[in-house]
Computed example of a mutant assay.
Amino acid sequence: MRNWPIFRLRVTTPRLELRIPSLDDLDELGDRAAEGVHDPGFKPFLFPWTDAEPAGRARSTIQFQFGQWSQWSPEKWGCSFVAVLDGQVVGTQELAATDFAVTREVSTGSWIGQRFQGRGIGTEMRSAVLHLAFDGLGAQHATSGAFADNHASYAVSRKLGYLDDGIQIHNRRGKAAQLRRLRLPRDRWSTPAGFEIHDLEPCLPLFGVSRTA
């Protein structure tokens, strides 16, 4: 689409392609959500979307993406990619920012279908959007966060060089839960070999980035 070039944006890694999802991709991502994202009883998300029955999880996954597209502006955007491994959608990786032109700060969030976990895909997905943020968009900081019992997410952040950035206490399904904030400054990031960004230039205004920045 000439007037919405974000659909052509891709980030590739040695194993993965991250792309803005087509309708077919969204259908497949909904299937991953329906199949399951975590063990029963585990609560990795503040908003309890995974508590819904499988069809509800699939629908909310698709609706979330439509909502991001409709609300996108250069001042506040959320860019959710699907991660594709060997031609199959395995999960989603978000990069988001508010007033990026001023703050040069992004945040990330992700999930992977449960049957694809444990293969290092989460680290590779996060690295891909950090490459986009730091090397493509000129970000100076990336933030993330995980509840204290989400050891897998915290391990990914640690592996990529994030620093502790304080804690927050949230109401998670009626109980207090500690969220660990994490921050990665630009000078602690080094892009791994084999990572590439495709068709970013036409998208820069959508991210609030000047072509001369």
Rank of each mutant, 00 (worst) to 15 (best):
F195C: 07
S157I: 00
R10A: 12
I121G: 02
P74L: 11
A97H: 02
S60I: 13
G91E: 12
R2G: 14
L160G: 02
K76Y: 11
G36T: 02
R183Q: 04
A52M: 09
T98P: 15
D149I: 00
L95W: 00
L182H: 13
D25A: 05
S153M: 08
F64Y: 15
G67Q: 09
V102I: 10
T212D: 12
M1V: 07
S190F: 09
T61Y: 08
A34Y: 03
A58T: 00
P192A: 01
A58S: 14
G136V: 01
Q71N: 12
L132H: 10
G194S: 07
M1Q: 12
P14E: 07
V11S: 04
K76C: 15
R183C: 07
T191S: 13
A55D: 14
F42I: 13
D24G: 13
K43V: 14
A34L: 04
L18N: 08
E105P: 00
T103M: 02
W189G: 01
A52G: 12
G91I: 05
A146T: 08
I197Y: 05
W72C: 11
I167F: 14
A193D: 14
Q140T: 06
R8N: 15
G30H: 05
T61A: 09
S22W: 01
L46H: 03
Q65D: 12
N3F: 08
P44A: 06
S107A: 14
L182G: 11
P205C: 08
R173S: 12
V82F: 05
M1N: 10
S157K: 05
F47Q: 14
L132D: 03
H170W: 06
N150A: 06
S22Y: 02
T92C: 14
P21T: 02
R172H: 08
R188Y: 04
V82C: 08
S190Q: 15
L18H: 08
Q168V: 06
D135P: 04
G41D: 09
R181D: 02
Y162F: 15
L95Y: 00
L132E: 05
L160Q: 03
T191P: 10
E105D: 10
E17L: 12
D165Q: 09
P40V: 02
S107D: 09
R126G: 00
H131W: 05
F7L: 13
A101V: 02
E35Y: 01
R115F: 06
P74Q: 09
V84A: 02
L26M: 15
E201V: 07
P54M: 10
A152R: 15
E105W: 07
I169N: 11
H170E: 13
A139N: 04
F81A: 06
D24E: 14
S107E: 12
S70E: 14
T108R: 02
T191D: 05
L85Y: 04
G166F: 01
R104I: 01
L29E: 13
P192D: 01
T103P: 01
L23W: 11
D86Y: 01
W72E: 08
C79F: 08
H131V: 07
Q71T: 07
G113D: 07
I62N: 07
Q114R: 14
Y154C: 10
P48R: 08
I167M: 11
S153C: 05
S70A: 12
V37N: 08
P74C: 06
W77L: 03
T103R: 11
